[in-house]
Nucleic acid binder design. Structure first.
Lengths: 227, 227
DNA sequence: CGGAATCCTCTTCGATACTG
DNA sequence: CAGTATCGAAGAGGATTCCG
């Protein structure tokens, strides 16, 4: 029995929004679903520390509010998956603005759980609109497969590999993190990551991504905070 | 003793952002500060139900992270006020995107606490960039003074009255709420609100505001949710 | 094996009371 | 006015158990 969930009861769009997406774990759960449909267990893996009970409660809440849909996959994959509805996907502006604001905290972090795709989502969120000719690229980071798709006006990071990617970048998450957050003098090139396929295309994409992240991280008025 | 605040400990800009602004009440507190500097007691009034202990904890947290600054006002006003730092003010994109997304929930609400300025913030957040010639306007709603300033590319709602406003709109919050959310056939005019000063200017501004709110509320894929 | 419900402990919240 | 102290209630975190 969850009882009535806590609400603000204010006639204010921010308060009404937070009644739906303001609970702990909710926006991170939505971050996971922006990377593609997920099973319950996938979500547990993508939200370290969440606890199955809280996750089930959040999923039910989001389903009731029409942000998430539960769907049974047809054969040959007898799995129950969760995915964003159009209303849920319309949170992209919210998720992007939070990711851009939070990018200022990315450099210099230690002792945090890391996932390749989180870093790719950060890079995609902070990137400028792609110049013509920039190509979608696959990534295998710490053995985890994901990709960055180059769309019309923005980049998007999702799970899995594309069949039509221009190149595949391989390495560890620390490798890419170092490449992205270390302000080497001039152009550090690829650092320790390796490339299959069109190396030029991968270099160009990475350069575009790193420039965007640095710009977002610096526009944070570089407050180092936390006495 | 608060102990260590709970953190996600993920190398992800969204998780790092939510470690700072994700706690209950925090974004609503920031909403209040976007309307101008506030004393502790003002904030309590603007956050019905918060409890002074939680408010003090949130303010300390935001101060430590460099989003909020505490300042002692000089004579003749021996008051301690809280205000946003530049880093705190850089949350405007986050607050705006949440307000726009949440605007879909505004129509048809009942039994909620209402404040004139919250509604003005909602209208300012969802409004399109102002056309040239649109003028700043004062509002007195349920006796509470606030205003909407017409800026370069956006509107902003704050507390208090401007000395150089084009007009003053007077009425109750339900009056303005009805005017804003009731899709009357064609143009409902001013409804029950009254205008001092340039009536044409006030009508134009209100028309602009209402159009923006309706557009934002409808782009929400009108899911009525919550069984 | 995936998808939870249950149980237990700990933290946080909300409300009231109290203090410099 | 600007908070701190306190306390019952609600929520989160973690492990285990259950069910199809």
């Amino acid at each position: 029995m969850a009882g009535e969930p806590r609400r603000y009861r204010e006639l204010c769009p921010i308060a009404l929004a937070l009644d739906v997406i303001g609970d702990r774990w909710t926006l991170l759960l939505i971050r996971e679903l922006f990377a593609g449909p997920k099973r319950f267990t996938d979500l547990e893996q993508g939200l370290p520390g969440v606890g199955s009970s809280v996750l089930a409660t959040r999923l039910r809440h989001l389903e009731q509010h029409g942000l998430v849909r539960r769907r049974r996959l047809p054969r040959p994959a007898p799995a129950l998956i969760y995915e964003l509805t159009p209303r849920g996907a319309s949170l992209d502006a919210v998720v992007l603005s939070i990711a851009r604001w939070g990018a200022a905290y990315l450099p210099g972090q230690q002792d945090l759980v890391s996932r390749g795709r989180w870093l790719l989502q950060a890079l995609a969120a902070t990137a400028d609109p792609p110049p013509p000719g920039l190509g979608s690229t696959n990534f295998v980071l710490d053995g985890e497969e994901s990709h960055i798709r180059v769309g019309h006006r923005r980049l998007a990071a999702r799970d899995g590999l594309l069949t039509d990617a221009r190149a595949t970048v391989r390495g560890t998450v620390p490798d890419l993190y170092t490449l992205a957050t270390t302000s080497g003098t001039g152009e550090p090139g690829l650092g320790r990551v390796a490339v299959d396929g069109d190396r030029r295309a991968a270099e160009w994409l990475l350069k575009h991504l790193v420039a965007g992240l640095r710009s977002a991280a610096n526009s944070g008025t570089s407050t180092k905070e936390h006495a």
